[in-house]
Write a protein that binds this DNA or RNA. Structure first.
Length: 289
DNA sequence: AACACTGCCAACCGCCTCCAT
DNA sequence: CATGGAGGCGGTTGGCAGTGT
């Protein structure tokens, strides 16, 4: 540590040698990054950090280093450990509160379902488009309902494996994409309970199903008929309950207009755009870099 | 008090990419 | 173009502390 503070980062092999350590450079690097760095934040993850990790994980998948890059003072290792030991378990436990008959393979994690569906050749580029059989659709909805987090499970569908198809539930047969909105996004208030934070607003379960209509990014989309608006102008959000209709000029996921780039097909999902807007989380107690 | 169990976390391992030669 | 070293990354392991029995 003192060597690093004195000389700064250089070739790790040299550092190991010059500092008189019986270690390989790689080991030194790891020790510095994960433990010795003075800018590391110690202690438990805050609820806001949890929220952000879940959100980022839904976008980036297990790209811990990229997630860590957006959490000041946290390391990829730390986040990975936190995810594997805490969040994953919590999501799993909460999903088990539902009937085992709700879905067939309880060992599956949300991502597994996504992978499974992906493996079924339901990628957006495929001829099958994004049509889900009733079974798969039920599986997906199940995760929306069951993971205790409509937010995380919804976003689970945006995993790294899904970057080509960020919205697997988007059914090209319809003008509207249907999925549940996270409670925390619909109402940025925080509660103490994990389940509360991440939303127990299961689609339909509480009679609150929300539909989000997003102009399709594909040429055969008919959504531009929406009030004659072009897809660059706004997204329509339909709340099924109360039959109310809300139109948002910006976005609801902090996604911005990143899915509507001029030449951007859905397979060219603007990940950076997604991530840029993570910092716009209203309840973050810190600004992201 | 002793033992088993569990959770956390630092460290290790193997693979990959990048880059200089 | 092939090769090797360095760095980066994600998955996994093992030790330790805390908790339960």
């Amino acid at each position: 540590m003192s060597y690093m503070l004195r000389n700064g980062q250089g070739c790790w092999s040299d550092i190991a040698r010059n500092a008189g350590l019986q270690r390989c450079g790689k080991s030194c690097r790891l020790r510095w990054i994960n433990y010795l760095r003075p800018d590391l934040k110690r202690g438990a993850f805050s609820p806001q950090e949890e929220e952000l990790i879940i959100h980022l994980h839904s976008i980036l998948g297990n790209r811990w280093s990229q997630i860590a890059a957006r959490l000041p003072g946290r390391t990829d290792n730390e986040i990975k450990n936190f995810w594997n030991s805490t969040i994953k378990k919590r999501l799993k436990n909460s999903s088990q509160t539902h009937s085992p008959n709700d879905y067939h393979d309880s060992s599956l994690e949300p991502r597994d379902v996504v992978d499974k569906i992906n493996a079924m050749g339901m990628g957006v580029g495929g001829s099958s488009g994004m049509l889900l059989s009733m079974h798969e659709h039920e599986m997906m909805n199940m995760y929306m309902d069951s993971s205790s987090s409509s937010f995380s499970s919804m976003n689970t569908m945006l995993t790294s494996n899904q970057l080509d198809n960020p919205f697997p539930l988007l059914d090209n047969r319809h003008d509207q994409m249907v999925f549940s909105l996270p409670t925390c996004m619909a109402k940025p208030e925080m509660t103490d309970e994990f389940d509360g934070r991440y939303g127990v607003m299961g689609g339909g379960k509480m009679g609150v199903e929300r539909e989000i209509s997003i102009p399709g990014s594909q040429s055969n989309s008919t959504t531009e008929e929406n009030n004659g608006a072009t897809q660059n102008e706004y997204y329509t959000i339909e709340m099924k309950n109360n039959n109310s209709k809300v139109e948002e000029s910006d976005n609801i996921f902090g996604v911005g207009n990143h899915w509507q780039g001029e030449n951007m097909g859905i397979g060219e999902w603007d990940l950076e755009g997604l991530l840029e807007n993570v910092s716009s989380f209203p309840f973050l107690d810190f600004q992201l870099q």
